[in-house]
Design a protein around this nucleic acid. Structure first.
Lengths: 417, 417
DNA sequence: GTAGCGTTTGTGTATTTACACAAACGCTAC
DNA sequence: GTAGCGTTTGTGTAAATACACAAACGCTAC
């Protein structure tokens, strides 16, 4: 390494601490001789170099918005640049994408453990670049990391305390209001109104790669504001906050749906579930919210057909109750006389009237729909319904008995609690 | 009183203790110079005099059956003889009832406190009777009472212990098996299989007359075998046992129905309820059974329309659960979004879509039936259903949401627990 | 074998339901 | 007044449902 080389001198200058990110951006820009943008994990602009030449449409849009436009982010995902970036901490060379007005780029992701802190983008344009340019970028990433961790207000070195507080919210019977308020100040967060717990459960073993993608997506899928998130065994737990809105529920639904879709496709996961609690206005309700989300997950696994794409606790309908109902039944060794009679008959005749009845009730007592679902003739369906009445004396026009039977059939599926 | 009068001598002989009821019957028969029958509270024959003359059809039937034929009992009720008999302890003169083959009678009931122990029937036929005959009957009743209380096996003087044991069964968390067995032996009862608790609740103030009639009916309405019964405030609580049968449930239903009908008509009661538990095979389940019967009563009062003539716990259908559901909802301050939206709209527009929806669900989602129940045009009903969907987005063909709404509407009616 | 039972499917008809459209009413706002 | 909204009722048609009956199949019992 020749000390006379001016570029090397500049690279050395990257080792010095910086008082603000903008001057760091300028220095990197000088080293690489091209415009630079530094973004956080959400693609919000933290700083950018003061270049005015060689700028493309994507850069203009990004700086004007103080955030990378969604169109550009999506383009980067589709062409494979983002997946590469969040899979490792090496510089990634990204060729021009004309459709979204993005010129040639070199980018690098900034990490702390398995969590992305942000990105540096070098707008290389048509300029040639050399191996030491990439080295310089890596050094720059180190600097940005230090800066973000030390200087940015919500990056104080108190993560463990934050984590502990979060667990306390999730599991403690009662959290003192003043404690909540003190944490709100300390971490500059708001824990009132529009609060919900979201839990994703992975069936695959959790790899660092899954963690990385999950952390990234939790910041980037923008329907909700993620206040805290962590991995707990197979679960990825989030405390989110929703902006005051007409259809906050829809927002959470979209969030879970998109998160699930993206991470499943990106990482080719075999199977995963996502569920959200109701929306609460106080942080004190997070224990309950956490339970609701877990209940949602467990129900989705037990009733995959009925609860497909049913992410929200409020959309569970009767499934909200059947666990409680099951416990109650087990405690009292309760048997429903209609179900019992049909079970007996099915066993004797090798028939499946009980299953037919269940499907009938599941299909809102509609003969046609049920027959289609069971691949049988509507008349067969009618015949079976007649038999069901003859055998069990269950009046299928009496909702009070009918519903009880359906609920008990569902509860039976849960087995011993 | 002249000691030379042979009749008086015989009356005096009634003061002597007797070794068996038959000889007592004979003695009474001699005093009154007519055939005598002594029955227990169930109209089973305890003893009869050995007369062969002056016997009518009713007497023959009674002695052959060892019980008064139902036809005769009903006739006595209809013509007003039985009501008089169980209203006081005086002799009652009953004129001939030809339709049931009953000749002239004088009868007297035998009491302990407010409970009937049995009856003495004097078959006077066409014979004249005098005032001292009635006196003799009263003396005889005293003797029969003594005899029943002292000599009949299940009339030991341990009623308080029996009562205590019964309350223990009803309310204790756990009753030892060996204790139960010892009581079974002591009281010569069987406490296995076909056991149920029945509770009648009177809205009128409990008078001695009501108590008398209730005790009497509990022995006489024959579908069930009453093992124990007592009054507790407004409640008449029975532990009954059912003979092994195909439709034990029907039997209890009939029992409650008939009991209610008879006592209401006889005593002109304004209002009363009756409810039974499930049928259990062990006396250990009586705590639960008692709770079930009480729950049935409370639900009948809260849902008089829906649960009219629904006496059995097993027939409650979904109402079995709504109390539990209500508690659960209250605890979590849960609100159903569909109900909430309709409530808001109803309030704003002065409409009653929520009520319409409830009736629709109560009528098994049948437009015609609901329209008729609400006295509106079917098209109006359809229009409202369309509006209900537009306002709440409740899909009326999705049973999982629909049922949840209905259950919550019912639970709402219970109010704070 | 064959008689009997429980079952499935096809055919046909009467009834009920779903849905669209039009007319009319009460109420509010301008 | 009148325009607009939400509502009720009537009319009409297409679709779905209920129900009866007949033919055919598999299985069991004799």
């Amino acid at each position: 390494m020749e000390p006379s080389n001016p570029k090397n001198n500049k690279i050395l200058s990257l080792q010095q601490p910086f008082s603000n990110l903008d001057s760091l951006a300028d220095t990197i820009s000088e080293v690489l001789a091209c415009p630079i943008t530094i973004e956080d994990a959400n693609h919000y602009v933290l700083a950018y170099s003061k270049h005015t030449e060689n700028i493309d449409q994507a850069r203009i849009g990004t700086i004007m918005n103080r955030k990378v436009p969604d169109k550009v982010i999506n383009g980067l995902w589709k062409n494979g640049a983002m997946p590469k970036l969040i899979d490792n901490d090496q510089p990634v060379i990204i060729p021009e994408i004309k459709e979204i007005g993005l010129g040639n780029r070199i980018a690098i992701s900034i990490w702390k453990n398995n969590e992305i802190l942000g990105f540096i983008w070098a707008h290389t344009g048509n300029k040639e670049y050399a191996a030491d340019d990439l080295e310089a970028l890596k050094k720059a990433a180190q600097q940005v990391k230090k800066f973000i961790l030390q200087k940015l207000p919500d990056r104080k070195n108190t993560e463990q305390a934050y984590k502990d507080f979060f667990w306390q919210l999730l599991t403690a019977d009662f959290v003192n209001t003043s404690i909540i308020q003190s944490y709100e100040k300390q971490f500059n967060i708001q824990l009132q109104d529009g609060l919900a717990i979201v839990v994703f459960r992975f069936e695959d073993e959790i790899t660092p790669q899954i963690e990385k993608h999950a952390y990234y997506l939790s910041e980037t899928v923008m329907q909700v504001n993620t206040i805290f998130r962590l991995f707990d065994d197979q679960d990825f737990i989030l405390l989110v906050r929703l902006w005051k809105d007409d259809d906050t529920s829809d927002k959470i639904h979209q969030f879970i749906s998109q998160f699930q879709e993206k991470i499943s496709i990106q990482l080719q996961l075999t199977s995963m579930y996502g569920a959200a609690s109701q929306i609460y206005s106080s942080a004190k309700d997070m224990t309950r919210a956490y339970e609701e989300a877990l209940q949602g997950l467990s129900l989705q696994k037990q009733f995959p057909n009925q609860l497909d794409a049913c992410f929200l606790y409020e959309d569970l309908g009767i499934f909200q109750w059947i666990d409680m109902l099951n416990r109650h039944r087990q405690k009292r060794q309760h048997t429903n006389k209609y179900i019992y009679k049909l079970q007996q008959y099915d066993q004797r005749q090798q028939s499946n009237l009980l299953y037919t009845l269940e499907k009938f009730l599941e299909n809102d007592s509609n003969v046609h729909r049920t027959a289609k679902a069971l691949f049988i003739h509507p008349n067969t369906m009618n015949y079976r319904l007649k038999r069901i009445y003859e055998i069990s004396h269950l009046d299928l026009k009496n909702p009070h008995q009918k519903i009880a039977v359906y609920l008990e059939l569902l509860a039976d599926k849960l087995g011993r609690p």
